[in-house]
Amino acid sequence: MSSADIEIKKLKKVYYKDKMEIPVLAGLDLSISAGEFVALMGPSGSGKSTLLHLIGGLDTATAGSVRVGESLLETMSEAQLTSWRSRHVGFIFQMYHLVPVLTAAQNVELPLLLFKMKSSERKERVKTALTIVGLGDRMDHRPNQLSGGQEQRVAIARAIVTDPDVILADEPTGDLDAKTSEEILNLLNLLNEEFGKTILMVTHDPKAAAHAKKTVHLEKGQLEREEFSNRQPMAAAR
């Protein structure tokens, strides 16, 4: 069960459109310690997804530095980033992005294809991951036979099956109703508290943000303020 801290220094991201500069992140600093659960809020277009992509090595920064655990992303090539991602990062998207023709178990098994691993061990891991998200009995269902909440659970299982250091979630409850959202957020709390995963979650919903220990606000390319929630750990609540 691994976990890593994240340190971002003077991060800049500029997009170019028709030779026009579109500055999105303007020298942003952010530190997240290992095992922390942070919510990222901010108006639409403020650069939340952009920041998440940069931390996950899906995109490269214009300037500045991103360190995740031991890894300095700006020093890595695209191929290195790709392989690094498979070992250290778990992504969760708003639209789940499951492979529609594969079953829940096969979707979760996919990222394990990138590891040298016995088939029996893979199957074992898949089962564990699906059990953690509460879908041990839905292994052989296709995405279209699952509800939105269940699909997102499969996506979460897929994100954690490789035992990544950090989980990056971009509006994971954006497409779900209140009750289902609550279940998904509790699941993230579980991953954070029981498994010690570092989680950075983008959200527009203050109720969702309340599940995190800390919320950071992004505005005009900078972090405007940080606030800490008074949320009790799940274990304490029980």
């Binding site: 191929a79 992504f91 492979v99 529609p100 990222p111 990138l114 897929r158």
Partner: peptide
């Protein structure tokens, strides 16, 4: 396209 992008985000190479 979205599926391919997801695969890449999981760490599958080009």
């Amino acid at each position: 396209i979205a599926e391919m992008a997801t695969l890449k985000s999981l760490g599958f190479s080009g």
